[in-house]
Design a protein around this nucleic acid. Structure first.
Lengths: 153, 153
DNA sequence: GTGCATGCAAACGCTTTGCAGTCTG
DNA sequence: CAGACTGCAAAGCGTTTGCATGCAC
């Protein structure tokens, strides 16, 4: 994860905390650190486990509320792949990307494509839509799983 | 909704029913009829309401299991927009489409674009992925809502 | 008749919240 | 100190399922 993105996130969060009169607590700081430092797209469960690897005591509700806070601050984004639990990732500052998801091993690769973005805008325009956001996910098998998937396993 | 698509769906379902030794019941037939005839993307709740407008007695579980059956038969597809309840739509036979969703009025417009499809395949290939399926949703405001959205309302 | 289908109600899994106690600023 | 924050436990909500009864074939 690029350090600049993390720094940008911390900065934005810091501002938000001040503006909203939020407080820094041991748990909150910890969850934020873990979220920012661990790459990927993690569920609340996973985040809680990761946090607990560092200290022993953080409630699920606190993780939940902290991620909500991060979303309000515009630092985190919630995603739903399949019908699993929500996953969180660092918000995009200016940039944008979509996802390739391996249905066998769960691997998630990010991609972005200006051609598709452009094309989308055209389509929306043609239908009189004003685009706010979009979501584009490609599901399949990653290179490592293509050959050796017994499905059942 | 084009009659051919409905017919194709009925045919496929019929075959599946026979193959699997499934039975036709009053409720099941009714749910299937409603699902096939009512356009759009409906939730189980909505489908149950629609069915009950025709007769008085169909349990939620039956709607649930019937839609599951339709999915197994390859006649229905489940979709999740936002974090709402699942919505069902008639499966695509050969074709494929994606969605434009109005965040103000809930209107859903279907679209398809070969350029995007092609581009997707390229991207997947580049990452060593074998594509199974994808999902592409564009959220925004439809023509009717662009001007007069008070947001709060 | 046999066996799938139905409907109710309860179980589930994730998400969200009330509340009493704790801690930050 | 006041007001936020935490953790637990319980409530919500949509989704699934067990079971006794009913119906299609």
């Amino acid at each position: 994860m690029s350090t600049e993105r993390i720094e940008a996130a911390r900065e934005r969060l810091g501002q938000y905390m001040v503006e909203q009169g939020k407080k820094n607590t041991r748990q909150r700081d910890l969850i934020v650190d873990v979220f920012l430092e661990v790459e990927g797209h993690h569920s609340l469960q996973e985040l809680q486990v990761l946090v607990r690897q560092r200290v022993g005591t953080v409630g699920y509700a606190t993780v939940y509320r902290t991620m909500k806070l991060l979303m309000d601050a515009g630092v985190a984004v919630e995603r739903h792949f399949g019908s699993d639990a929500a996953r969180f990732e660092l918000a995009e500052f200016g940039t944008h990307h979509d996802h390739l998801i391996c249905e066998a091993c769960g691997k998630i690769v990010e991609f972005e494509d200006p051609v598709i973005e452009e094309r989308q805008d055209q389509i929306a325009r043609r239908h009189g839509f004003q685009v706010n956001r979009h979501r584009h996910e490609i599901y399949g098998l990653c290179a490592g799983c293509v050959g050796n998937v017994t499905d059942g396993a």
